[in-house]
């Protein structure tokens, strides 16, 4: 990157480090932090939408729909989330290929499951074998986002269901007394009021989500953990920047990154909580009202 970096072996420690930390591989490493942020930015709204749908379904008067919603939100309680991560990525991958197989080549006669193999016709391969590298990467990333959204949607569903029940019953009764329909009560009274009750739970999930991002590595994405391992491994003098095993220091860097990130989120969420409590019939809202007088 810098001009004096042409022959790093002649440099002192500090310029050497400067060159080392700005070489091509490190720029890729820094870019992989964007992968983490992209994952968070895409997963959070999707998971919230899944959770909202699940919570609304759990309240439904149609029994099968309510069961479905409850089953989905209950699924995360007894089983480690990492099992779901490993499971869903494979299931989604195979499911998509299977569906495309059914559509693209209907007259394929061989079995798809042959012993230990999963074979679909070549046209149904997703993404197709000759697709460029970035398609493969994007596809893998999209699968990961979807998997995260499924798992964290179930968490959100749990929280939102509880929040919907926490909205004081008289509020809903008043709305009914004004002649609102069930749908109107839901959208105009219940949903606007539930957020303040949902916020503690949702901020918890946000923290969990941040701390679940390194698991991307297990799903085969080239994320920060991948690069930290890659770059930290010892380099012999055959390389331009030889160094011993530095993985510990790289992981220390990641640890500090996550600590800073969670701390920052905590502060931001505390502010948001204060903002949402304004004018609410809760203890926090009451305190703010008294303080203002």
């Amino acid at each position: 990157m810098f001009e004096f970096c042409t022959d790093p072996s002649t440099l002192d420690t500090i310029p050497w480090l400067g060159c080392y930390l700005t070489n091509g591989a490190h720029l890729l490493f820094y870019r992989s932090f964007l992968v983490v942020f992209a994952l968070l930015a895409l997963t959070a709204p999707t998971a919230l939408a899944f959770g909202f749908a699940a919570a609304a379904a759990s309240r439904s008067h149609i029994a099968p729909l309510a069961w479905l919603g409850k089953l989905y939100t209950a699924m995360v309680r007894g089983v480690p989330d990492i099992v779901f991560f490993l499971f869903f990525v494979l299931v989604l991958d195979q499911g998509i290929e299977y569906l495309r197989h059914q559509i693209v080549c209907p007259d394929w006669t061989e079995d798809i499951r042959q012993g230990a193999n999963f074979l679909v016709c070549p046209e149904a391969r997703t993404p197709s074998g000759n697709a460029p590298q970035w398609v493969h990467k994007t596809y893998g990333f999209a699968l990961a986002v979807f998997t995260y959204a499924i798992v964290f949607g179930a968490f959100c569903g749990n929280v939102l269901f509880g929040a919907m029940r926490a909205v004081p019953r008289p509020q809903l009764e008043t709305a009914e007394a004004y002649g609102m329909s069930r749908r109107q009560v839901f959208w105009r009274v219940l949903v606007p009021q539930m957020w303040v009750y949902a916020l503690p739970g949702l901020s918890n999930i946000w923290m969990i989500l941040i701390k679940a991002t390194p698991l991307l590595f297990l799903l085969g994405i080239q994320d920060i953990v991948y690069w930290a391992r890659e770059l930290g491994g010892s380099r012999t003098s055959a390389y331009q920047y030889p160094h011993p095993d530095w993985r510990f220091w790289y992981f220390l860097g990641l640890l500090i990154f996550y600590l800073a990130f969670t701390k920052l989120s905590e502060v931001a969420l505390a502010r948001l909580s204060a903002r949402l409590s304004r004018g609410q019939a809760t203890a926090a809202g009451e305190e703010m009202r008294k303080a203002a007088i």
């Binding site: 953990v225 930290g232 095993d245 510990f248 640890l255 600590l259």
Partner: peptide, 22 residues
């Protein structure tokens, strides 16, 4: 409490392992 609650367990495992190997 802050360090162990604020960082992912996954990273803690990685870091501890590298430290123990060293």
């Amino acid at each position: 409490i802050f360090v162990f609650r604020g960082s992912p367990l996954f990273i803690q495992f990685f870091m501890a392992y590298e430290a123990f190997v060293m």
